[in-house]
Simulated assay, not measured.
Amino acid sequence: MTSSYFGHYVALSLAVMASTVSMTANAHDYPVTVQSCDRQVTFEKAPTAAVSNDVNLTEMMLALGLQDHMVGFTGISGWKTLAPDLREGIGELPELSAKYPTKEVLLGADADFYFAGWNYGMRVGGGVTPDTLAPLGIRVYELTESCVHIMDKAKVSMQDMYLDLLNLGRIFNVEERAKQLVAGYQTSLANFQAELPKLDQPVKVFVYDSGEEQPFTSGRFGMPTALIEAAGGVNVLDDVAKSWTQVGWEAVIDRAPEAIIIVNYGQVTAQQKIDFMRSNPAFKDIPAVKNNRFVVLEYVEATPGPRNIAAIKRLAKAFRATQ
């Protein structure tokens, strides 16, 4: 899929980095092998010329303090505006391609590592895949949420995002840093959930990404489902065995969501999406529309990455306002 709180994560990352500043990449730490979708990928040393695709994957790299291992990023400005806080975190790193990169772009940057996902910088059968990049000396680590495009996997959960951070930690020999970062997210979320008022029943939620004739939304394998469940809701399209996909409006109307998540990115604003739903007579009896229960998540919050925890907290508060 294609398309502030970042200061908090930068601060957290810097704190973690400070506690592990003595860590260095020692030869005896390698080789390391990680599972990437249906492949095992072995690294003889930490990559030194990494490229990340998309804003959420880039933020994962930044949260782990891996800027010095990177030569650039791709796939942000072609769909989304680069937020000032992200630009500050990236520093002088260039955007090598506004949308998905070609092999030539990655070769031109002398890349030795590409962090991407299926429909997050790679397409099945496309020109840039782990198989096409391997002969060029570019190893690929695939975003776990996206693996459903090429293999069977379990339903999406927060563990998918945690696993990616931990695997990146192993790949770049900052494993302790990654463990502390993940533990911090888990503790923050658990403490928040423990104090939440109990819901009478899970709130029924629809994810509205884009599209008017047919909505583009998230099914059981997309990250919003994990966010919704962690916040006390249920995705009304949980039975759709896709990550991100189009459905018919009839399915949304029939399932009567009590809250609607608007994914904000691109040329159509979140408010325009809300106005479309509120002005369409076909949607007037949907409880979320009738009661104006819309929650806006930025693209970078709705896709796997460091901003997921803050997104869950906002969703949880919004869901409790429906009961």
Results as ranks from 00 to 15, higher is better:
52 S>P: 00
80 K>T: 13
243 S>K: 02
189 L>Y: 01
236 V>P: 00
320 R>W: 12
211 G>Y: 04
275 D>M: 13
7 G>I: 13
154 A>I: 05
224 P>C: 11
142 E>G: 04
309 I>Y: 04
227 L>R: 02
246 Q>Y: 15
208 Y>Q: 06
20 T>K: 15
163 L>R: 15
251 A>K: 09
4 S>P: 14
137 G>N: 08
213 E>M: 12
176 E>N: 14
49 A>H: 15
308 N>I: 10
85 D>F: 02
78 G>F: 00
79 W>T: 12
102 T>P: 10
231 A>Y: 08
180 Q>K: 12
297 L>G: 00
141 Y>I: 01
259 A>M: 11
303 T>D: 14
112 D>M: 08
117 G>A: 06
89 G>A: 07
143 L>S: 03
263 V>I: 15
142 E>Q: 10
72 G>Y: 02
24 T>P: 00
275 D>Y: 12
117 G>K: 01
287 P>N: 02
107 L>M: 12
13 S>P: 09
318 A>Y: 01
194 A>M: 04
59 E>I: 04
309 I>H: 05
138 I>G: 00
101 P>M: 03
101 P>D: 10
241 A>C: 05
281 P>R: 13
255 R>M: 07
321 A>D: 15
223 M>A: 06
99 K>C: 06
172 F>L: 07
52 S>Q: 01
256 A>R: 15
191 N>F: 04
183 A>E: 13
131 D>Y: 10
322 T>Q: 11
99 K>A: 09
211 G>W: 02
118 W>V: 00
246 Q>A: 13
194 A>V: 06
132 T>P: 01
198 K>W: 09
21 V>R: 15
66 L>Y: 04
184 G>E: 11
174 V>Q: 05
320 R>D: 09
206 F>L: 14
278 R>Q: 14
28 H>I: 12
144 T>D: 05
114 Y>C: 00
256 A>V: 06
63 A>F: 03
215 P>I: 04
123 R>C: 07
252 V>G: 00
199 L>S: 06
111 A>V: 04
226 A>Y: 00
36 S>K: 04
10 V>F: 14
140 V>G: 07
176 E>R: 15
154 A>V: 09
216 F>E: 01
309 I>V: 14
285 D>R: 09
247 V>L: 06
287 P>L: 03
235 N>K: 08
323 Q>I: 03
245 T>Q: 05
322 T>D: 12
276 F>K: 11
32 V>H: 05
161 M>S: 15
64 L>C: 09
41 V>R: 09
159 Q>S: 12
49 A>N: 15
311 A>K: 04
126 G>S: 13
21 V>N: 08
81 T>I: 06
275 D>T: 15
81 T>F: 08
131 D>H: 07
193 Q>N: 02
38 D>I: 10
122 M>L: 06
46 A>N: 04
198 K>P: 07
121 G>L: 05
287 P>T: 08
252 V>E: 03
156 V>P: 01
11 A>F: 07
104 E>D: 11
220 R>Q: 11
8 H>A: 12
146 S>H: 08
283 F>V: 00
248 G>Y: 07
32 V>L: 14
18 A>P: 09
319 F>H: 09
109 A>F: 01
246 Q>C: 04
188 S>C: 12
248 G>M: 02
30 Y>R: 02
2 T>S: 13
134 A>M: 12
254 D>M: 10
170 R>E: 09
188 S>W: 00
135 P>W: 11
318 A>T: 00
172 F>H: 06
172 F>S: 10
